[in-house]
């Protein structure tokens, strides 16, 4: 029966390569979905208002995209460890208040406060791991702490961003608007760190199969601390970028970012559990949200009262498309 066995295994090989082709196509399609939804939003904007597609138009429309992208990346780190951060929005607001007050008036103390807040994030990661607490509960609690601290620092809107930060955010490079360059930079740096480095694999593996990682001798405490510290770091960057654009702060300035960040990660092809995340996808998701949030809806002449609801509808449509495509993958 030998020759027949060989024929059978050859046939199996052929079958599996076809199978793999189909899988790879489905995965590619899914990977392209964030880019596709961004293209769709851009097309819609171009159709409604062709003049918006210009250097100046993009600079204006994507004005707030950098802080949203940074907050989304922060959330993505937490999600890759199978956790969720409900405090990122108020944390961004807190950082904003520190940036507009301490960082301008007493830079050293400001820096210490910001580093300390990253350290607090790392501690939260340790606490969640050691006590086996649900991150949703811990971070929901922390969201009130950050908000309270923000109000203590800046009881009413005001303050002023440090001049160097204002200068950085007002940077106008030739040809390509600054927000687009910044988004590319953020996406590729994080992609390299999380997707290409050898420790990035361990970080993602801690979301994929924590038990296996523990058995292979890796510390899950360390991965969780690192992921939360990275979330804190990018939260700080997000808050600073936001104040660099708005020039002054308000304790409630970041409140909407919690849900925007979660939606951005999911829109970008991430999943809530299983360590499946994509940094470039997350940045694209953030850009899509930033565009769909107000420019698109304004061009569609949707009154501001309805914009939040319309925004939600766009989210549902894109996520439904994602589910349909991942179902075809099976």
């Amino acid at each position: 029966m030998r020759p027949e066995m060989t024929a059978a295994s050859l046939e199996t090989a052929a079958r599996t390569s076809a199978e793999r082709g189909a899988l790879a196509r489905a995965r590619l399609l899914r990977g392209l979905l964030p880019a596709l939804s961004l293209a769709l939003v851009l097309l819609a904007i171009a159709w409604l208002n062709p003049r918006a597609i210009s250097y100046f138009g993009f600079s204006l429309m994507l004005n707030l995209a950098i802080p949203i992208a940074l907050a989304t990346i922060a959330q993505m780190f937490v999600i890759s460890g199978n956790e969720l951060d409900l405090s990122i929005g108020t944390f961004v607001g807190f950082v904003g208040c520190v940036t507009a007050t301490w960082l301008k008036e007493a830079p050293l103390i400001g820096v210490v406060i910001l580093l300390g807040s990253i350290f607090v994030y790392a501690l939260l990661g340790a606490l969640i791991h050691l006590r086996n607490l649900p991150s949703i509960v811990v971070t929901l609690g922390m969201s009130f702490v950050w908000q309270g601290l923000a109000i203590l620092i800046l009881p009413k809107p005001g303050g002023k961003a440090p001049d160097w930060l204002l200068g950085l955010m007002a940077f106008k490079p030739p040809l390509v608007p600054f927000p687009i360059i910044a988004a590319l930079l953020i996406g590729f740096i994080v992609h390299f760190g999380l997707m290409r480095t050898s420790y990035g694999v361990i970080l993602r593996g801690s979301g994929g199969n924590p038990a296996a990682l523990g058995r292979a001798g890796w510390s899950l405490l360390k991965t969780k601390i690192v992921l939360f510290a990275l979330a804190g770091l990018f939260g700080v960057l997000s808050g600073m970028a936001l104040i660099g654009i708005t020039t002054s702060a308000d304790a409630n300035i970041g409140n909407g970012y919690t849900l925007l960040a979660i939606a951005g990660v999911i829109l970008g092809g991430g999943e809530f559990v299983g360590g499946r995340v994509s940094p470039i996808g997350a940045v694209i998701g953030a850009l899509t949200l930033a565009l769909a949030a107000s420019p698109l809806l304004t061009f569609m002449h949707i009154p501001p009262d309805w914009q939040v609801a319309a925004n939600g509808a766009i989210l549902i449509i894109v996520l439904a498309a994602r589910v349909l495509i991942s179902r075809r993958e099976r």
Partner: peptide, 15 residues
């Protein structure tokens, strides 16, 4: 005890 979200090579790296 493989991580389903990682590639075959990346799973090798874990060990």
């Amino acid at each position: 005890s493989l991580c389903p979200n990682l590639s075959v090579a990346e799973n090798t790296r874990i060990n």
